[in-house]
Design a protein around this nucleic acid. Structure first.
Lengths: 219, 219
DNA sequence: CTCTTTCTTTAGTGAGTGCTACAGAAAGAA
DNA sequence: TTCTTTCTGTAGCACTCACTAAAGAAAGAG
């Protein structure tokens, strides 16, 4: 234990693990979990199947790592935006506009990987589908608690329905991802984000308290 | 030619074609085009593969017929609603609320088949993907022309951006489908529809003219 | 050098894919 | 009956799937 890490013995890996993972991530992002075969992956990553299995485990584990890489490098940082923005309303605006950008980055697949990478799947990938579904629903729950905090602080009207407003905002984000895949450009999505924000209630002066997500749910 | 149709010769089909198609449609609706195998279909339709191929051609042709059956029996009739409703705004409201119902019908798959049945596909199903994408974009174009008609008639404000408002409405419809698949119930989706309509501009008195979709685009 | 460790390559595994040849079964026509 | 037509079931096609055993290749340790 402890001390210097001994030099690694044996033949060194001949490819860059990060680069290979990046290529796999883009393939999954573009086509989705089941539509990308191991053969597609080895071609995209420029390695042979046994090297892939030695470095990343099986296909499912590789996909999970690809999702982590996506969130780390390309995801819209829901939690960060919700914590940093002064109000829930401004956070939602930022989320929608960041999505407009993120879903139409040139040279990258369209839309959001977490929304679209595991929609049409067979029973044997049920766990992959459920994992992404949980991520989506947790994102909406985050938005809801941030809204509830602003309602409690008097920034948003007392009769604001935090749950429904959060689901609405999540639905718009998901619809924008689909629109990006169907060809909508960034300017169009920015406009959609602006229209979507018109449905949000006006703010009153209060004590915003950025990031102070006090309680999860009202009732 | 003409005259009475001669009695069909040969061994009669031992299954009901409509019922079998209905089962195939539900399978595609639930899981999507590529995730449903011929083996899955023969099980759901309770026929053997050669009977399937004799009655429906190949898998792609069967899917196309399943889409037709879906639109005929379960789809939200965009064109009909847009033509019948007195204004574009009321039409959008009806579309959103009909979607809330249609996406959560008990005993049927969640969400909209046209939105979700061909999202994660391999290159070899590119035509199926493109066909559904075209249906989605045509639906939005329909909404846009209805909005443009109301703007021209003075029902909606002159500065209304018909294109962006239509894409927004389409995005909400698509997001609601995803929400339904992620577990949102009908009441939640109805609330989302209500929130979404708050983003629409108010109407002024004018000459609504239902169905009078005059020109495709403004500029 | 040899020994050990680790990676890369070749060449597959069994299972599942969409699809079909062929023989048997069930109907009307003559 | 016998002939023709059409559907059904068995069995299997060539292909791809995710995955891996086994042997060769490249590094450090002795």
């Amino acid at each position: 234990m402890g001390g210097m890490a001994t030099k690694q013995r044996g033949r060194p890996r001949s490819f860059d693990r990060e680069t290979a993972l990046e290529q796999a991530m883009k393939a999954f992002w573009e086509r989705g979990y089941e539509a990308v075969s191991i053969s597609d992956l080895t071609r995209a990553m420029d390695i042979k199947a046994p090297s892939l299995y030695a470095a990343f485990g099986d296909k499912r584990t590789l996909f999970e790592e690809a999702i982590e890489a996506y969130v780390r490098n390309y995801g819209v940082f829901t939690a960060k935006v919700l914590a940093e923005a002064p109000t829930a309303r401004s956070a939602a605006g930022r989320l929608l506009h960041e999505a407009a950008t993120a879903h139409t980055l040139p040279g990258l697949p369209r839309g959001c990987m977490i929304i679209s990478a595991a929609t049409n799947c067979t029973e044997q990938s049920a766990e992959v589908v459920a994992a992404l579904q949980e991520r989506r629903n947790k994102g909406i729950a985050f938005i809801e608690s941030r809204i509830a905090a602003d309602v409690a602080a008097g920034v948003l009207p007392a009769d604001t329905d935090a749950h429904h407003l959060a689901v609405y905002t999540g639905a718009v984000l998901q619809g924008m991802s689909q629109q990006a895949r169907d060809g909508a450009d960034r300017a169009t999505l920015e406009a959609v984000a602006d229209v979507a924000m018109r449905a949000w209630p006006r703010e009153r002066a209060g004590e915003p308290g950025p990031g102070e997500v006090t309680s999860g749910r009202g009732a």
